[in-house]
Amino acid sequence: MDAFEQLGKTFFDWEAMAAVLPDLLTVGLPNTLLLALASGVIGTIVGMLLAIMGISRNRVLRWIARIYTDIFRGLPAVVIILLIGLGLGPILRQLTGSTSPYPLGILALSLIASAYIGEIFRSGIQSVEKGQLEATRALGFSYGSSMRLVVIPQGVRRVLPALVNQFIALIKESSLIYFIGLVASERELFRVGNDAASNTGNLSPLIAAGVLYLCLTIPLTHLVNFIDHRLRVGRKQKPELEDLTTMSEGARA
């Protein structure tokens, strides 16, 4: 067997891939999606709170947001995952009786995601021209309503590409959950692929897992490009609605 054939066997053993595929699709993929989605949603909500606190006129709120962000953005993801997953395990067990570290994995990923997403939202909101807040307040809206109705929607729109990038990072980072030890049914893509690779001594199952990651992340990167293009070039201008408006007016009369 020459070296080329050897490489092919190590990485592209179709039988080994076929053997692991059912587990990847029925166990790994749903778990990866669940981890990424749950921590993405929680991270977005907490991130928005952090962003609002970060631009608040209240110094204490600003400080809390600052310290939180510095810590969870500054530490390696695996450190946070281990500290939360192992450290809070006993507490979770006392409170709920559950021994599964799975929720703690979601918590750890959410904490990391919210720190990044908070900074993304904050930069977006702060990039909105001051005149927007001023004009909304001049109409008689409170500070809170002005932010909610006018400033934040514009700020979020501007950072949608960065936000999707963060979701891509989450899908990949969810693989680090394997550090805290999961039972067979809780394994995500990487762990399923890795277990099969260890068992067979062949890396092809990991390649299969990698392909599934790409199936998730590549469409998202194209979504980023699409949103980015749309934001820069703008939506296609709708045809003049002049006739439509007069028509509906006539119908009303």
Binding site: G131, Q132, E134, A138, V150, Q154
Partner: peptide, 9 residues
């Protein structure tokens, strides 16, 4: 306002 400050979205 001088800069109109319409809501662009």
């Amino acid at each position: 306002f001088q800069q109109f400050n319409l809501f662009p979205h």
